[in-house]
């Protein structure tokens, strides 16, 4: 086909996709709803949720996981647009990173050393490692579908970012249930769950986000 003809055809095609931002706004709630359904079916909100909300430890889990999710989402939307530099925005990951460091410093500073290991090992580490990725999985699917409307020049990195955001949101959801509150536990076991989802996002993203 001649290029002139191709151009004539392209100009006649007035169908336009939703922008990456709109696609995320439309699909993310759907992914979150499925994750919420999984939560209702499999888990329940911890019995001591309200009293624990008054301690620093439970709000810490939400602040950490939600700030991670927000930063990853912002990064993701930048990666969706060609010509927008995403790498400088990586610095924003210092927010959840710094929060994690503060949490660790707090636990090591104010709690007695003999509680550190029990806190780290917790009660439900194995469930946590499985349930964080499970809660995040529908959100990852939604974000990957939304990103297919975008044009990430680095599909693997974009997929990893989607996995990180999904991991953060999935972890926040799981934190409604989880009774292990030590930041050491969160660092290790939530970390493993979120890392697994990030890796999955990277691997899937490389395949499905190329354009």
């Amino acid at each position: 086909m001649r290029t002139d003809d191709l151009i004539r055809g392209l100009a006649a095609d007035t169908t336009r996709e939703a922008s990456p931002g709109r696609a995320v706004t439309m699909l993310l709630p759907a992914g979150f709803a499925v994750a919420g359904l999984l939560f209702v079916l499999l888990l329940r909100v911890r019995a001591d949720f309200l009293p624990m909300l008054a301690t620093p430890w439970l709000p810490f889990k939400f602040a950490l996981t939600l700030s991670l999710a927000v930063v990853a989402l912002v990064l993701l939307l930048r990666l969706a647009r060609p010509g927008i530099k995403a790498v400088p925005a990586v610095i924003a990951l210092l927010v959840p990173g710094g929060m994690m460091a503060l949490g660790i410093a707090a636990v090591l500073g104010v709690t007695p050393p003999e509680t550190w290991m029990p806190g780290l090992i917790g009660h439900n580490a194995r469930y946590c490692m499985v349930l964080v990725p499970l809660m995040g999985a529908p959100i990852l699917v939604a974000l990957l579908l939304a990103m297919r409307k975008g044009a990430p020049t680095r599909p693997g990195l974009a997929g990893a970012c989607a996995g990180l955001a999904a991991g953060g949101l999935g972890a926040a959801l799981y934190a409604l249930h989880c009774t292990d509150d030590s930041p050491l536990f969160v660092l290790v076991w939530y970390g493993i769950g979120i890392a697994a989802l990030t890796l999955a996002g990277a691997l899937i993203g490389r395949r499905v986000l190329a354009w």
């Binding site: 392209l10 336009r16 060609p82 010509g83 975008g150």
Partner: peptide, 24 residues
């Protein structure tokens, strides 16, 4: 040209056009 066409919604009208085009 096909990619420019199919991904034109990823350019925001407030962004510079050059970097978007060159990256695609």
């Amino acid at each position: 040209l096909l990619a420019i066409h199919l991904k034109r919604h990823t350019w925001r009208t407030s962004d510079p056009f050059g970097p978007w085009l060159f990256t695609v």
